[in-house]
Design a protein around this nucleic acid. Structure first.
Lengths: 231, 231
DNA sequence: CGCGGCTTTGATGTTCATCAAGTAAAGTGG
DNA sequence: CCACTTTACTTGATGAACATCAAAGCCGCG
């Protein structure tokens, strides 16, 4: 775990409310004292699959990639992590080793809180624990849903789906710059790199999107949506 | 929610230890007073996707099917539930409606505990809450892992994988009777019914398994394992 | 400046969904 | 309980979708 430290206090953190709002004052300052905040640049690995779990992680801002290497050595991207997604919840509490590798796709800053401290707080603050349960539930539901949905689509549908996800959910703009390579898109929606490229080209030829390297411009939003939906 | 009631007490329940062991005596008897135990026969639906969540469920014995209907009206089986799997955890806490339909594949008995009571207990018993978090985490990890693994396999590999799952994990016997139809196997491992049948027939012709309707006998365990592994 | 990884396009072959058609089994109503 | 209907199972044939192989241009980096 590399990354550069810097710090504010939890009390002033703009993301505080999403999880720690119910925390008692004494526990909040305990968290504040025992946390580390770190910055990562695009490409940096934050934690590795198989490493011992030491911290509960919380993404303040940036974009993360959650992936795993399967038995055959092939990389699978399970999902992306954005602020307010509780990345740590995916990994933690079940095993004592991270099930996934987490890396930064863009400049990202994360808070790290010692896992034992978190457990201590959970044990003594049931309200906080319930909140965690809820967050964890919905994160998992979201990821599973995504996987199940993508599974049912043909390749065109998958590419359209993922482009719309970037456009609508991540960048809120029909112009954006892909934070991932073509290969990574393939790993994310379970198809070969060549086919990712091929279909992107098709969509370009059909004047549904414009492409300039990593820069995407969705021209025909409606058409793309139909492809995603129907494919 | 149908099913026939009957009852023992939580204190004497053989499954108590798996979740409720850390519960304080007063809370345990509160659970005991406010729970319902019900039996379901194979095929009965226990809760339906989209229904309001009223209870936390706990499978005492039997076998459950966890499924959902996707946007296109196609059925997808997300996984199977066995005793000590905390079925309820998949659905609960995130939304106020069940995300999945749960039905019995075999004669099953479940305990139902009012969800609001559960939340109340979680709020006042952090130890119990942490235990829940752990259980939930590992259930989700398991299901996601399964999905990711199956996704990477070819059809032969998937069928082999699922047969081994029944044999090793569910029935602990190389002879067993399938609790699901060919169609349901397809829904579980994401392939067409015809191909499930075709591959089962192939495996039979290759003398790797014997088939008699729903009855399966795995003759060449090692070969089947290799197909599952490398397929 | 050369090497490796990413991107692109084309050609080829395999895997799998789909269609079709028939048999067997399991409900259903008179 | 039997005729009837539906649902499950099975096999074969066909074509579409997709992975794989191949080759070449591109870009960043040591």
């Amino acid at each position: 775990m590399e990354g550069r430290k810097y710090s504010t206090t939890c009390g002033k953190c703009e993301y505080r409310s999403f999880l720690f709002s119910n925390l008692q004052k004494s526990d909040l300052s305990l968290v504040n004292l025992n946390r580390t905040e770190k910055d990562f640049t695009a490409g940096e690995i934050i934690v590795r699959q198989g490493e011992k779990i030491t911290d509960f992680m919380y993404l303040k801002n940036g974009l993360l990639k959650i992936s795993r290497e399967n038995e055959k050595g092939k990389n699978q991207i399970v999902g992306l992590g954005r602020p307010m997604d509780f990345i740590g919840l995916l990994n933690i509490f079940s095993e004592n080793r991270y099930q996934f590798t987490i890396s930064a796709l863009e400049e990202s800053s994360l808070c790290f809180i010692d896992i034992e401290l978190m457990k201590k707080i959970i044990r003594r603050d049931g309200y906080f624990a319930l909140k965690l349960l809820e967050k964890m539930s919905s994160m998992h539901d979201m990821i599973m849903n995504n996987m199940l949905v993508i599974d049912q689509k043909n390749l065109r549908g998958r590419v359209a789906f993922i482009l719309l996800m970037f456009s609508r959910e991540i960048y809120q703009n029909e112009k954006f710059s892909l934070p991932v390579s073509r290969k990574e898109i393939g790993e994310l929606i379970n198809m070969r790199t060549e086919n990712v490229i091929r279909i992107l080209s098709e969509l370009r030829k059909d004047n549904i999107i414009k492409i300039e390297g990593k820069d995407i411009h969705i021209v025909e939003n409606r058409k793309l949506f139909n492809i995603a939906e129907f494919g």
